[in-house]
Amino acid sequence: MKGTIVNCLGELVSSKFGKDKWEQALEIAGLNKNAMFMVFADIDDAQVMKVVQSVCKVLNITLEQAADAFGDYWVNVYSQKLYGHYYKKYTNAKDFLLSMDSVHEAMTKSMVNSAPPRFSYEIVNEKTIIINYKSKRNLIQFLVGLIKGVGNYYKENLRVKLLNNNRVEVVFP
C-alpha cells in the first residue's frame, strides 16, 4: 500500500483525536511514535492493517467506524489537496463512482508497484448500481466508507449496502 494512505490516517487521527492518540496507535503497531511515511513509498499491507487495528483499539471504535471515518476524510479533506480536480470533473456522486476505476487507473499509472483495487459496475436501474470490487487486499469495508464520503462530497444521501466481500450496492436519491 502507498504511504499516502497511512499519512491520511495519521492526519485524520491527529486532527480529530489528538497527536498523542496517533502516536499511541503507532507504538501499539510496533512502530516508532514519530514514524514518517513517504507518500509514494510502498508500505507492507500487513503493517498498514496493524496500524488500522491499533487506531481502532486506541479510539475504541470498530473497523467499520474507522473505515467510514477514513473514507469521509480521504474524499472531503485529504485527497482534495492532491486530487481535487478529479472530483470537480463530475457534478454528482453516481457519475464520479462510475468513473472510479478509470480515476484509480489514471492516478496510479505513474506510481511504481501500485496495485489499486479495480471496479466494475452493474446498473440495476436509474437509481441503483452495484460496484464489484477486486483487490487482493480485501478492504471492501474501506470502499464502503469511501462511497459514503463521495455522497457527502456531492451532498447526496446515498444508501450504501455491503452485499458480500466483493460487492456493494449504492442507491442514489
Rank of each mutant, 00 (worst) to 15 (best):
S120K: 14
M49V: 08
K134P: 00
Q53A: 15
E27I: 05
M100W: 14
D44N: 15
K2M: 10
R167S: 15
K33T: 06
H104R: 08
F119D: 01
L12E: 01
M1H: 10
N132Y: 06
N164G: 08
M107L: 14
D68R: 12
I61G: 10
V124R: 07
I140F: 04
V13C: 04
Q24N: 15
Q24G: 01
N60G: 08
R159P: 00
D101V: 04
Q141T: 14
I130G: 07
K16H: 10
Y154W: 05
F17S: 12
I61K: 10
A69D: 13
K155Q: 14
A67V: 03
S110G: 01
A35S: 15
K94Q: 12
V75M: 09
Q80E: 08
V55G: 04
G10V: 02
N32L: 09
A25M: 04
I43Y: 07
Y87P: 00
G71N: 05
N132G: 02
V112W: 08
S15R: 11
S135M: 07
A67G: 04
P117A: 14
C56G: 10
N152I: 03
K21A: 13
L9M: 15
N76A: 03
A46H: 10
V144N: 01
N60Q: 14
V6S: 03
Q80H: 04
N76I: 02
R167A: 14
K57R: 14
S14E: 06
S99C: 03
G3L: 04
N125R: 08
F17T: 03
V168L: 07
C56T: 11
Y83P: 00
P173V: 09
K88H: 10
L162D: 07
Y87E: 03
L26N: 05
L12G: 02
I147M: 08
V58C: 09
K81F: 09
L9W: 04
M36D: 11
T128D: 12
H104I: 04
L146V: 13
L97C: 01
E23M: 12
I131G: 02
D44G: 04
S99K: 09
K16S: 14
D44M: 02
K161V: 14
M111P: 00
D45E: 12
S54M: 03
D72G: 05
D72Y: 06
F142Q: 00
D101I: 06
Y83T: 06
Y90F: 15
S99W: 02
A93T: 02
N132T: 10
F40Y: 13
V51Q: 06
S15V: 05
K127M: 09
L26D: 03
M107S: 03
D95N: 15
N164L: 10
Y133T: 07
R137E: 12
K109G: 00
L59H: 09
K19Y: 05
A69C: 06
L98F: 08
D44W: 00
K16F: 07
S120R: 13
Y83I: 06
A67Q: 04
K155H: 12
L158R: 05
Y86F: 15
Q53K: 15
L31E: 14
D72K: 11
T91K: 14
H104Q: 13
F142M: 06
V52S: 06
Q65M: 11
K21E: 11
M1A: 10
D68L: 11
Q65H: 09
G71S: 05
Q47C: 07
S79E: 10
C56R: 06
P116V: 09
G145A: 08
V103L: 05
K155I: 07
D72V: 07
Q47K: 15
L139F: 08
Y153M: 02
Y121V: 06
G71W: 01
